[in-house]
Design a protein around this nucleic acid. Structure first.
Lengths: 154, 154
DNA sequence: GCAAAGCTATATTTTGAAATATAGATTAAT
DNA sequence: ATTAATCTATATTTCAAAATATAGCTTTGC
C-alpha cells in the first residue's frame, strides 16, 4: 500500500472504523441507543468477522442527524423512519414497471426500502448500506430539499 | 335557493358543519385532543362569528388520517407536522424567485407553510385553510405518493 | 331562563416510547 | 492471563408527550 492508498483510506468517510463505544461517545448517546436505532432500521453499521459493529464517519453524521430530529424537532423514531422512507427508491434505482410490480418497497413504502424483506431483483443481491437510497438520506432533517433536487433532475 | 343549490351545499365536503363535540365523536377522540391538534398546526377548522370551531367532512378525513399516523404508524405530533411540511408550497403556488427569497416557508420549511408567520405576498391575503398546499395533505399518510404525483406533473 | 356545549388557560395524570440496567457469553486488547 | 469491550436478550425505569381534568366565562338551543 502506497502513500496515496493510505491517504485514501483515511479520507474515505465511508470506511467503518469506529467501535460502538467510540461511536456512542462521538454522538453523545449510549451504546444501547445505537443498537436500538439499528433495530428500528435507522442505521446499518458494518460488522466485523465476529459480528461486532463498526461505524464510519458518514454513519456518525447520520446518527447526529437523527439526534437533531429527536432533540431539536421533537420527532420520535417512527417519525424519522417515516421521513427516511420518503425517498422514491424505484426512481433512484431506475426500476422497471415489472420490478415495481413485484417489489414491496414500491407497493407499501411505509418503511424504508432497506427494511423491506422481499425485494425486487434490482436490489436483492446488493448490500443496502452501499445503496444510494440509504446513503442519501444521511441528512434526514433535509429530506424536503433532497426530494426537490431529486425530482428536479429526474 | 333552489334544489340544485341545496344538493351542492349538502355534498360540498369542505363545508364546515360539525361542532367540535360532533367532530370529536366522529373521529373518536376528545374535544381537547382536537384543540391540541389545532394548536400544533395539524388542522385549521373554520370558526363561527363567535369563534366556535366548525369542522367539514374533509376536516374529519384529515383527522382520521392523523389518527392512522399515530395509532398504526406510531408517529408523534411532531412527526406528522414534519410529514405535512414536505409539500413544496412554492412549487404548488408558483412562487417567483423574489417571492421565495422573502418567504420563511421557502427558507426554513421545518414546519408547514400555514404555520409560518411571515409569508410572501403570494399567500399573505389568503386563508390557509383554503389553500391547496394545506388541503392536499389531507392524506398525510400518503405524502410519498402525493409528492411523486406532484413532481411528475411539474 | 337555563341547561348544555363551547371558549381559553392552566394544572394534573397517564402511559408508552426511549433509555437504562442486568445477565451470561464471546471477543479484543494489553 | 486478565481486564475491558462487545454481543444478544430481557427486564426495569424514566420522563415527557399526550390525554384528562378543572375553573371561570360565553354562546347556543330548547
Amino acid at each position: 500500500m502506497n502513500a496515496t492508498d493510505i491517504k485514501e483510506r483515511l479520507s474515505d468517510k465511508t470506511r467503518p472504523v469506529f467501535a460502538i463505544g467510540v461511536a456512542a461517545d462521538l454522538v453523545g448517546v449510549s451504546v444501547h441507543t445505537l443498537r436500538m436505532y439499528e433495530t428500528e432500521g435507522l442505521i446499518i453499521p458494518q460488522r466485523t468477522k465476529s459480528k461486532r459493529r463498526l461505524y464510519s464517519q458518514t454513519d456518525i453524521e447520520r446518527l447526529q442527524c437523527i439526534r437533531v430530529m429527536i432533540e431539536d424537532r421533537g420527532f420520535n423514531l417512527a417519525g424519522i423512519k417515516g421521513m427516511m422512507s420518503m425517498a422514491p427508491c424505484w426512481e433512484i434505482k431506475g426500476c422497471s414497471e415489472t420490478d415495481r410490480a413485484s417489489c414491496d418497497a414500491y407497493k407499501s413504502s411505509l418503511e424504508p426500502c432497506w427494511m423491506v424483506k422481499s425485494k425486487t431483483s434490482v436490489c436483492q443481491d446488493e448490500a443496502c448500506s452501499e445503496c444510494p437510497v440509504y446513503r442519501d438520506v444521511t441528512t434526514c432533517h433535509n429530506m424536503k430539499s433532497y426530494l426537490q433536487e431529486h425530482w428536479k433532475n429526474a
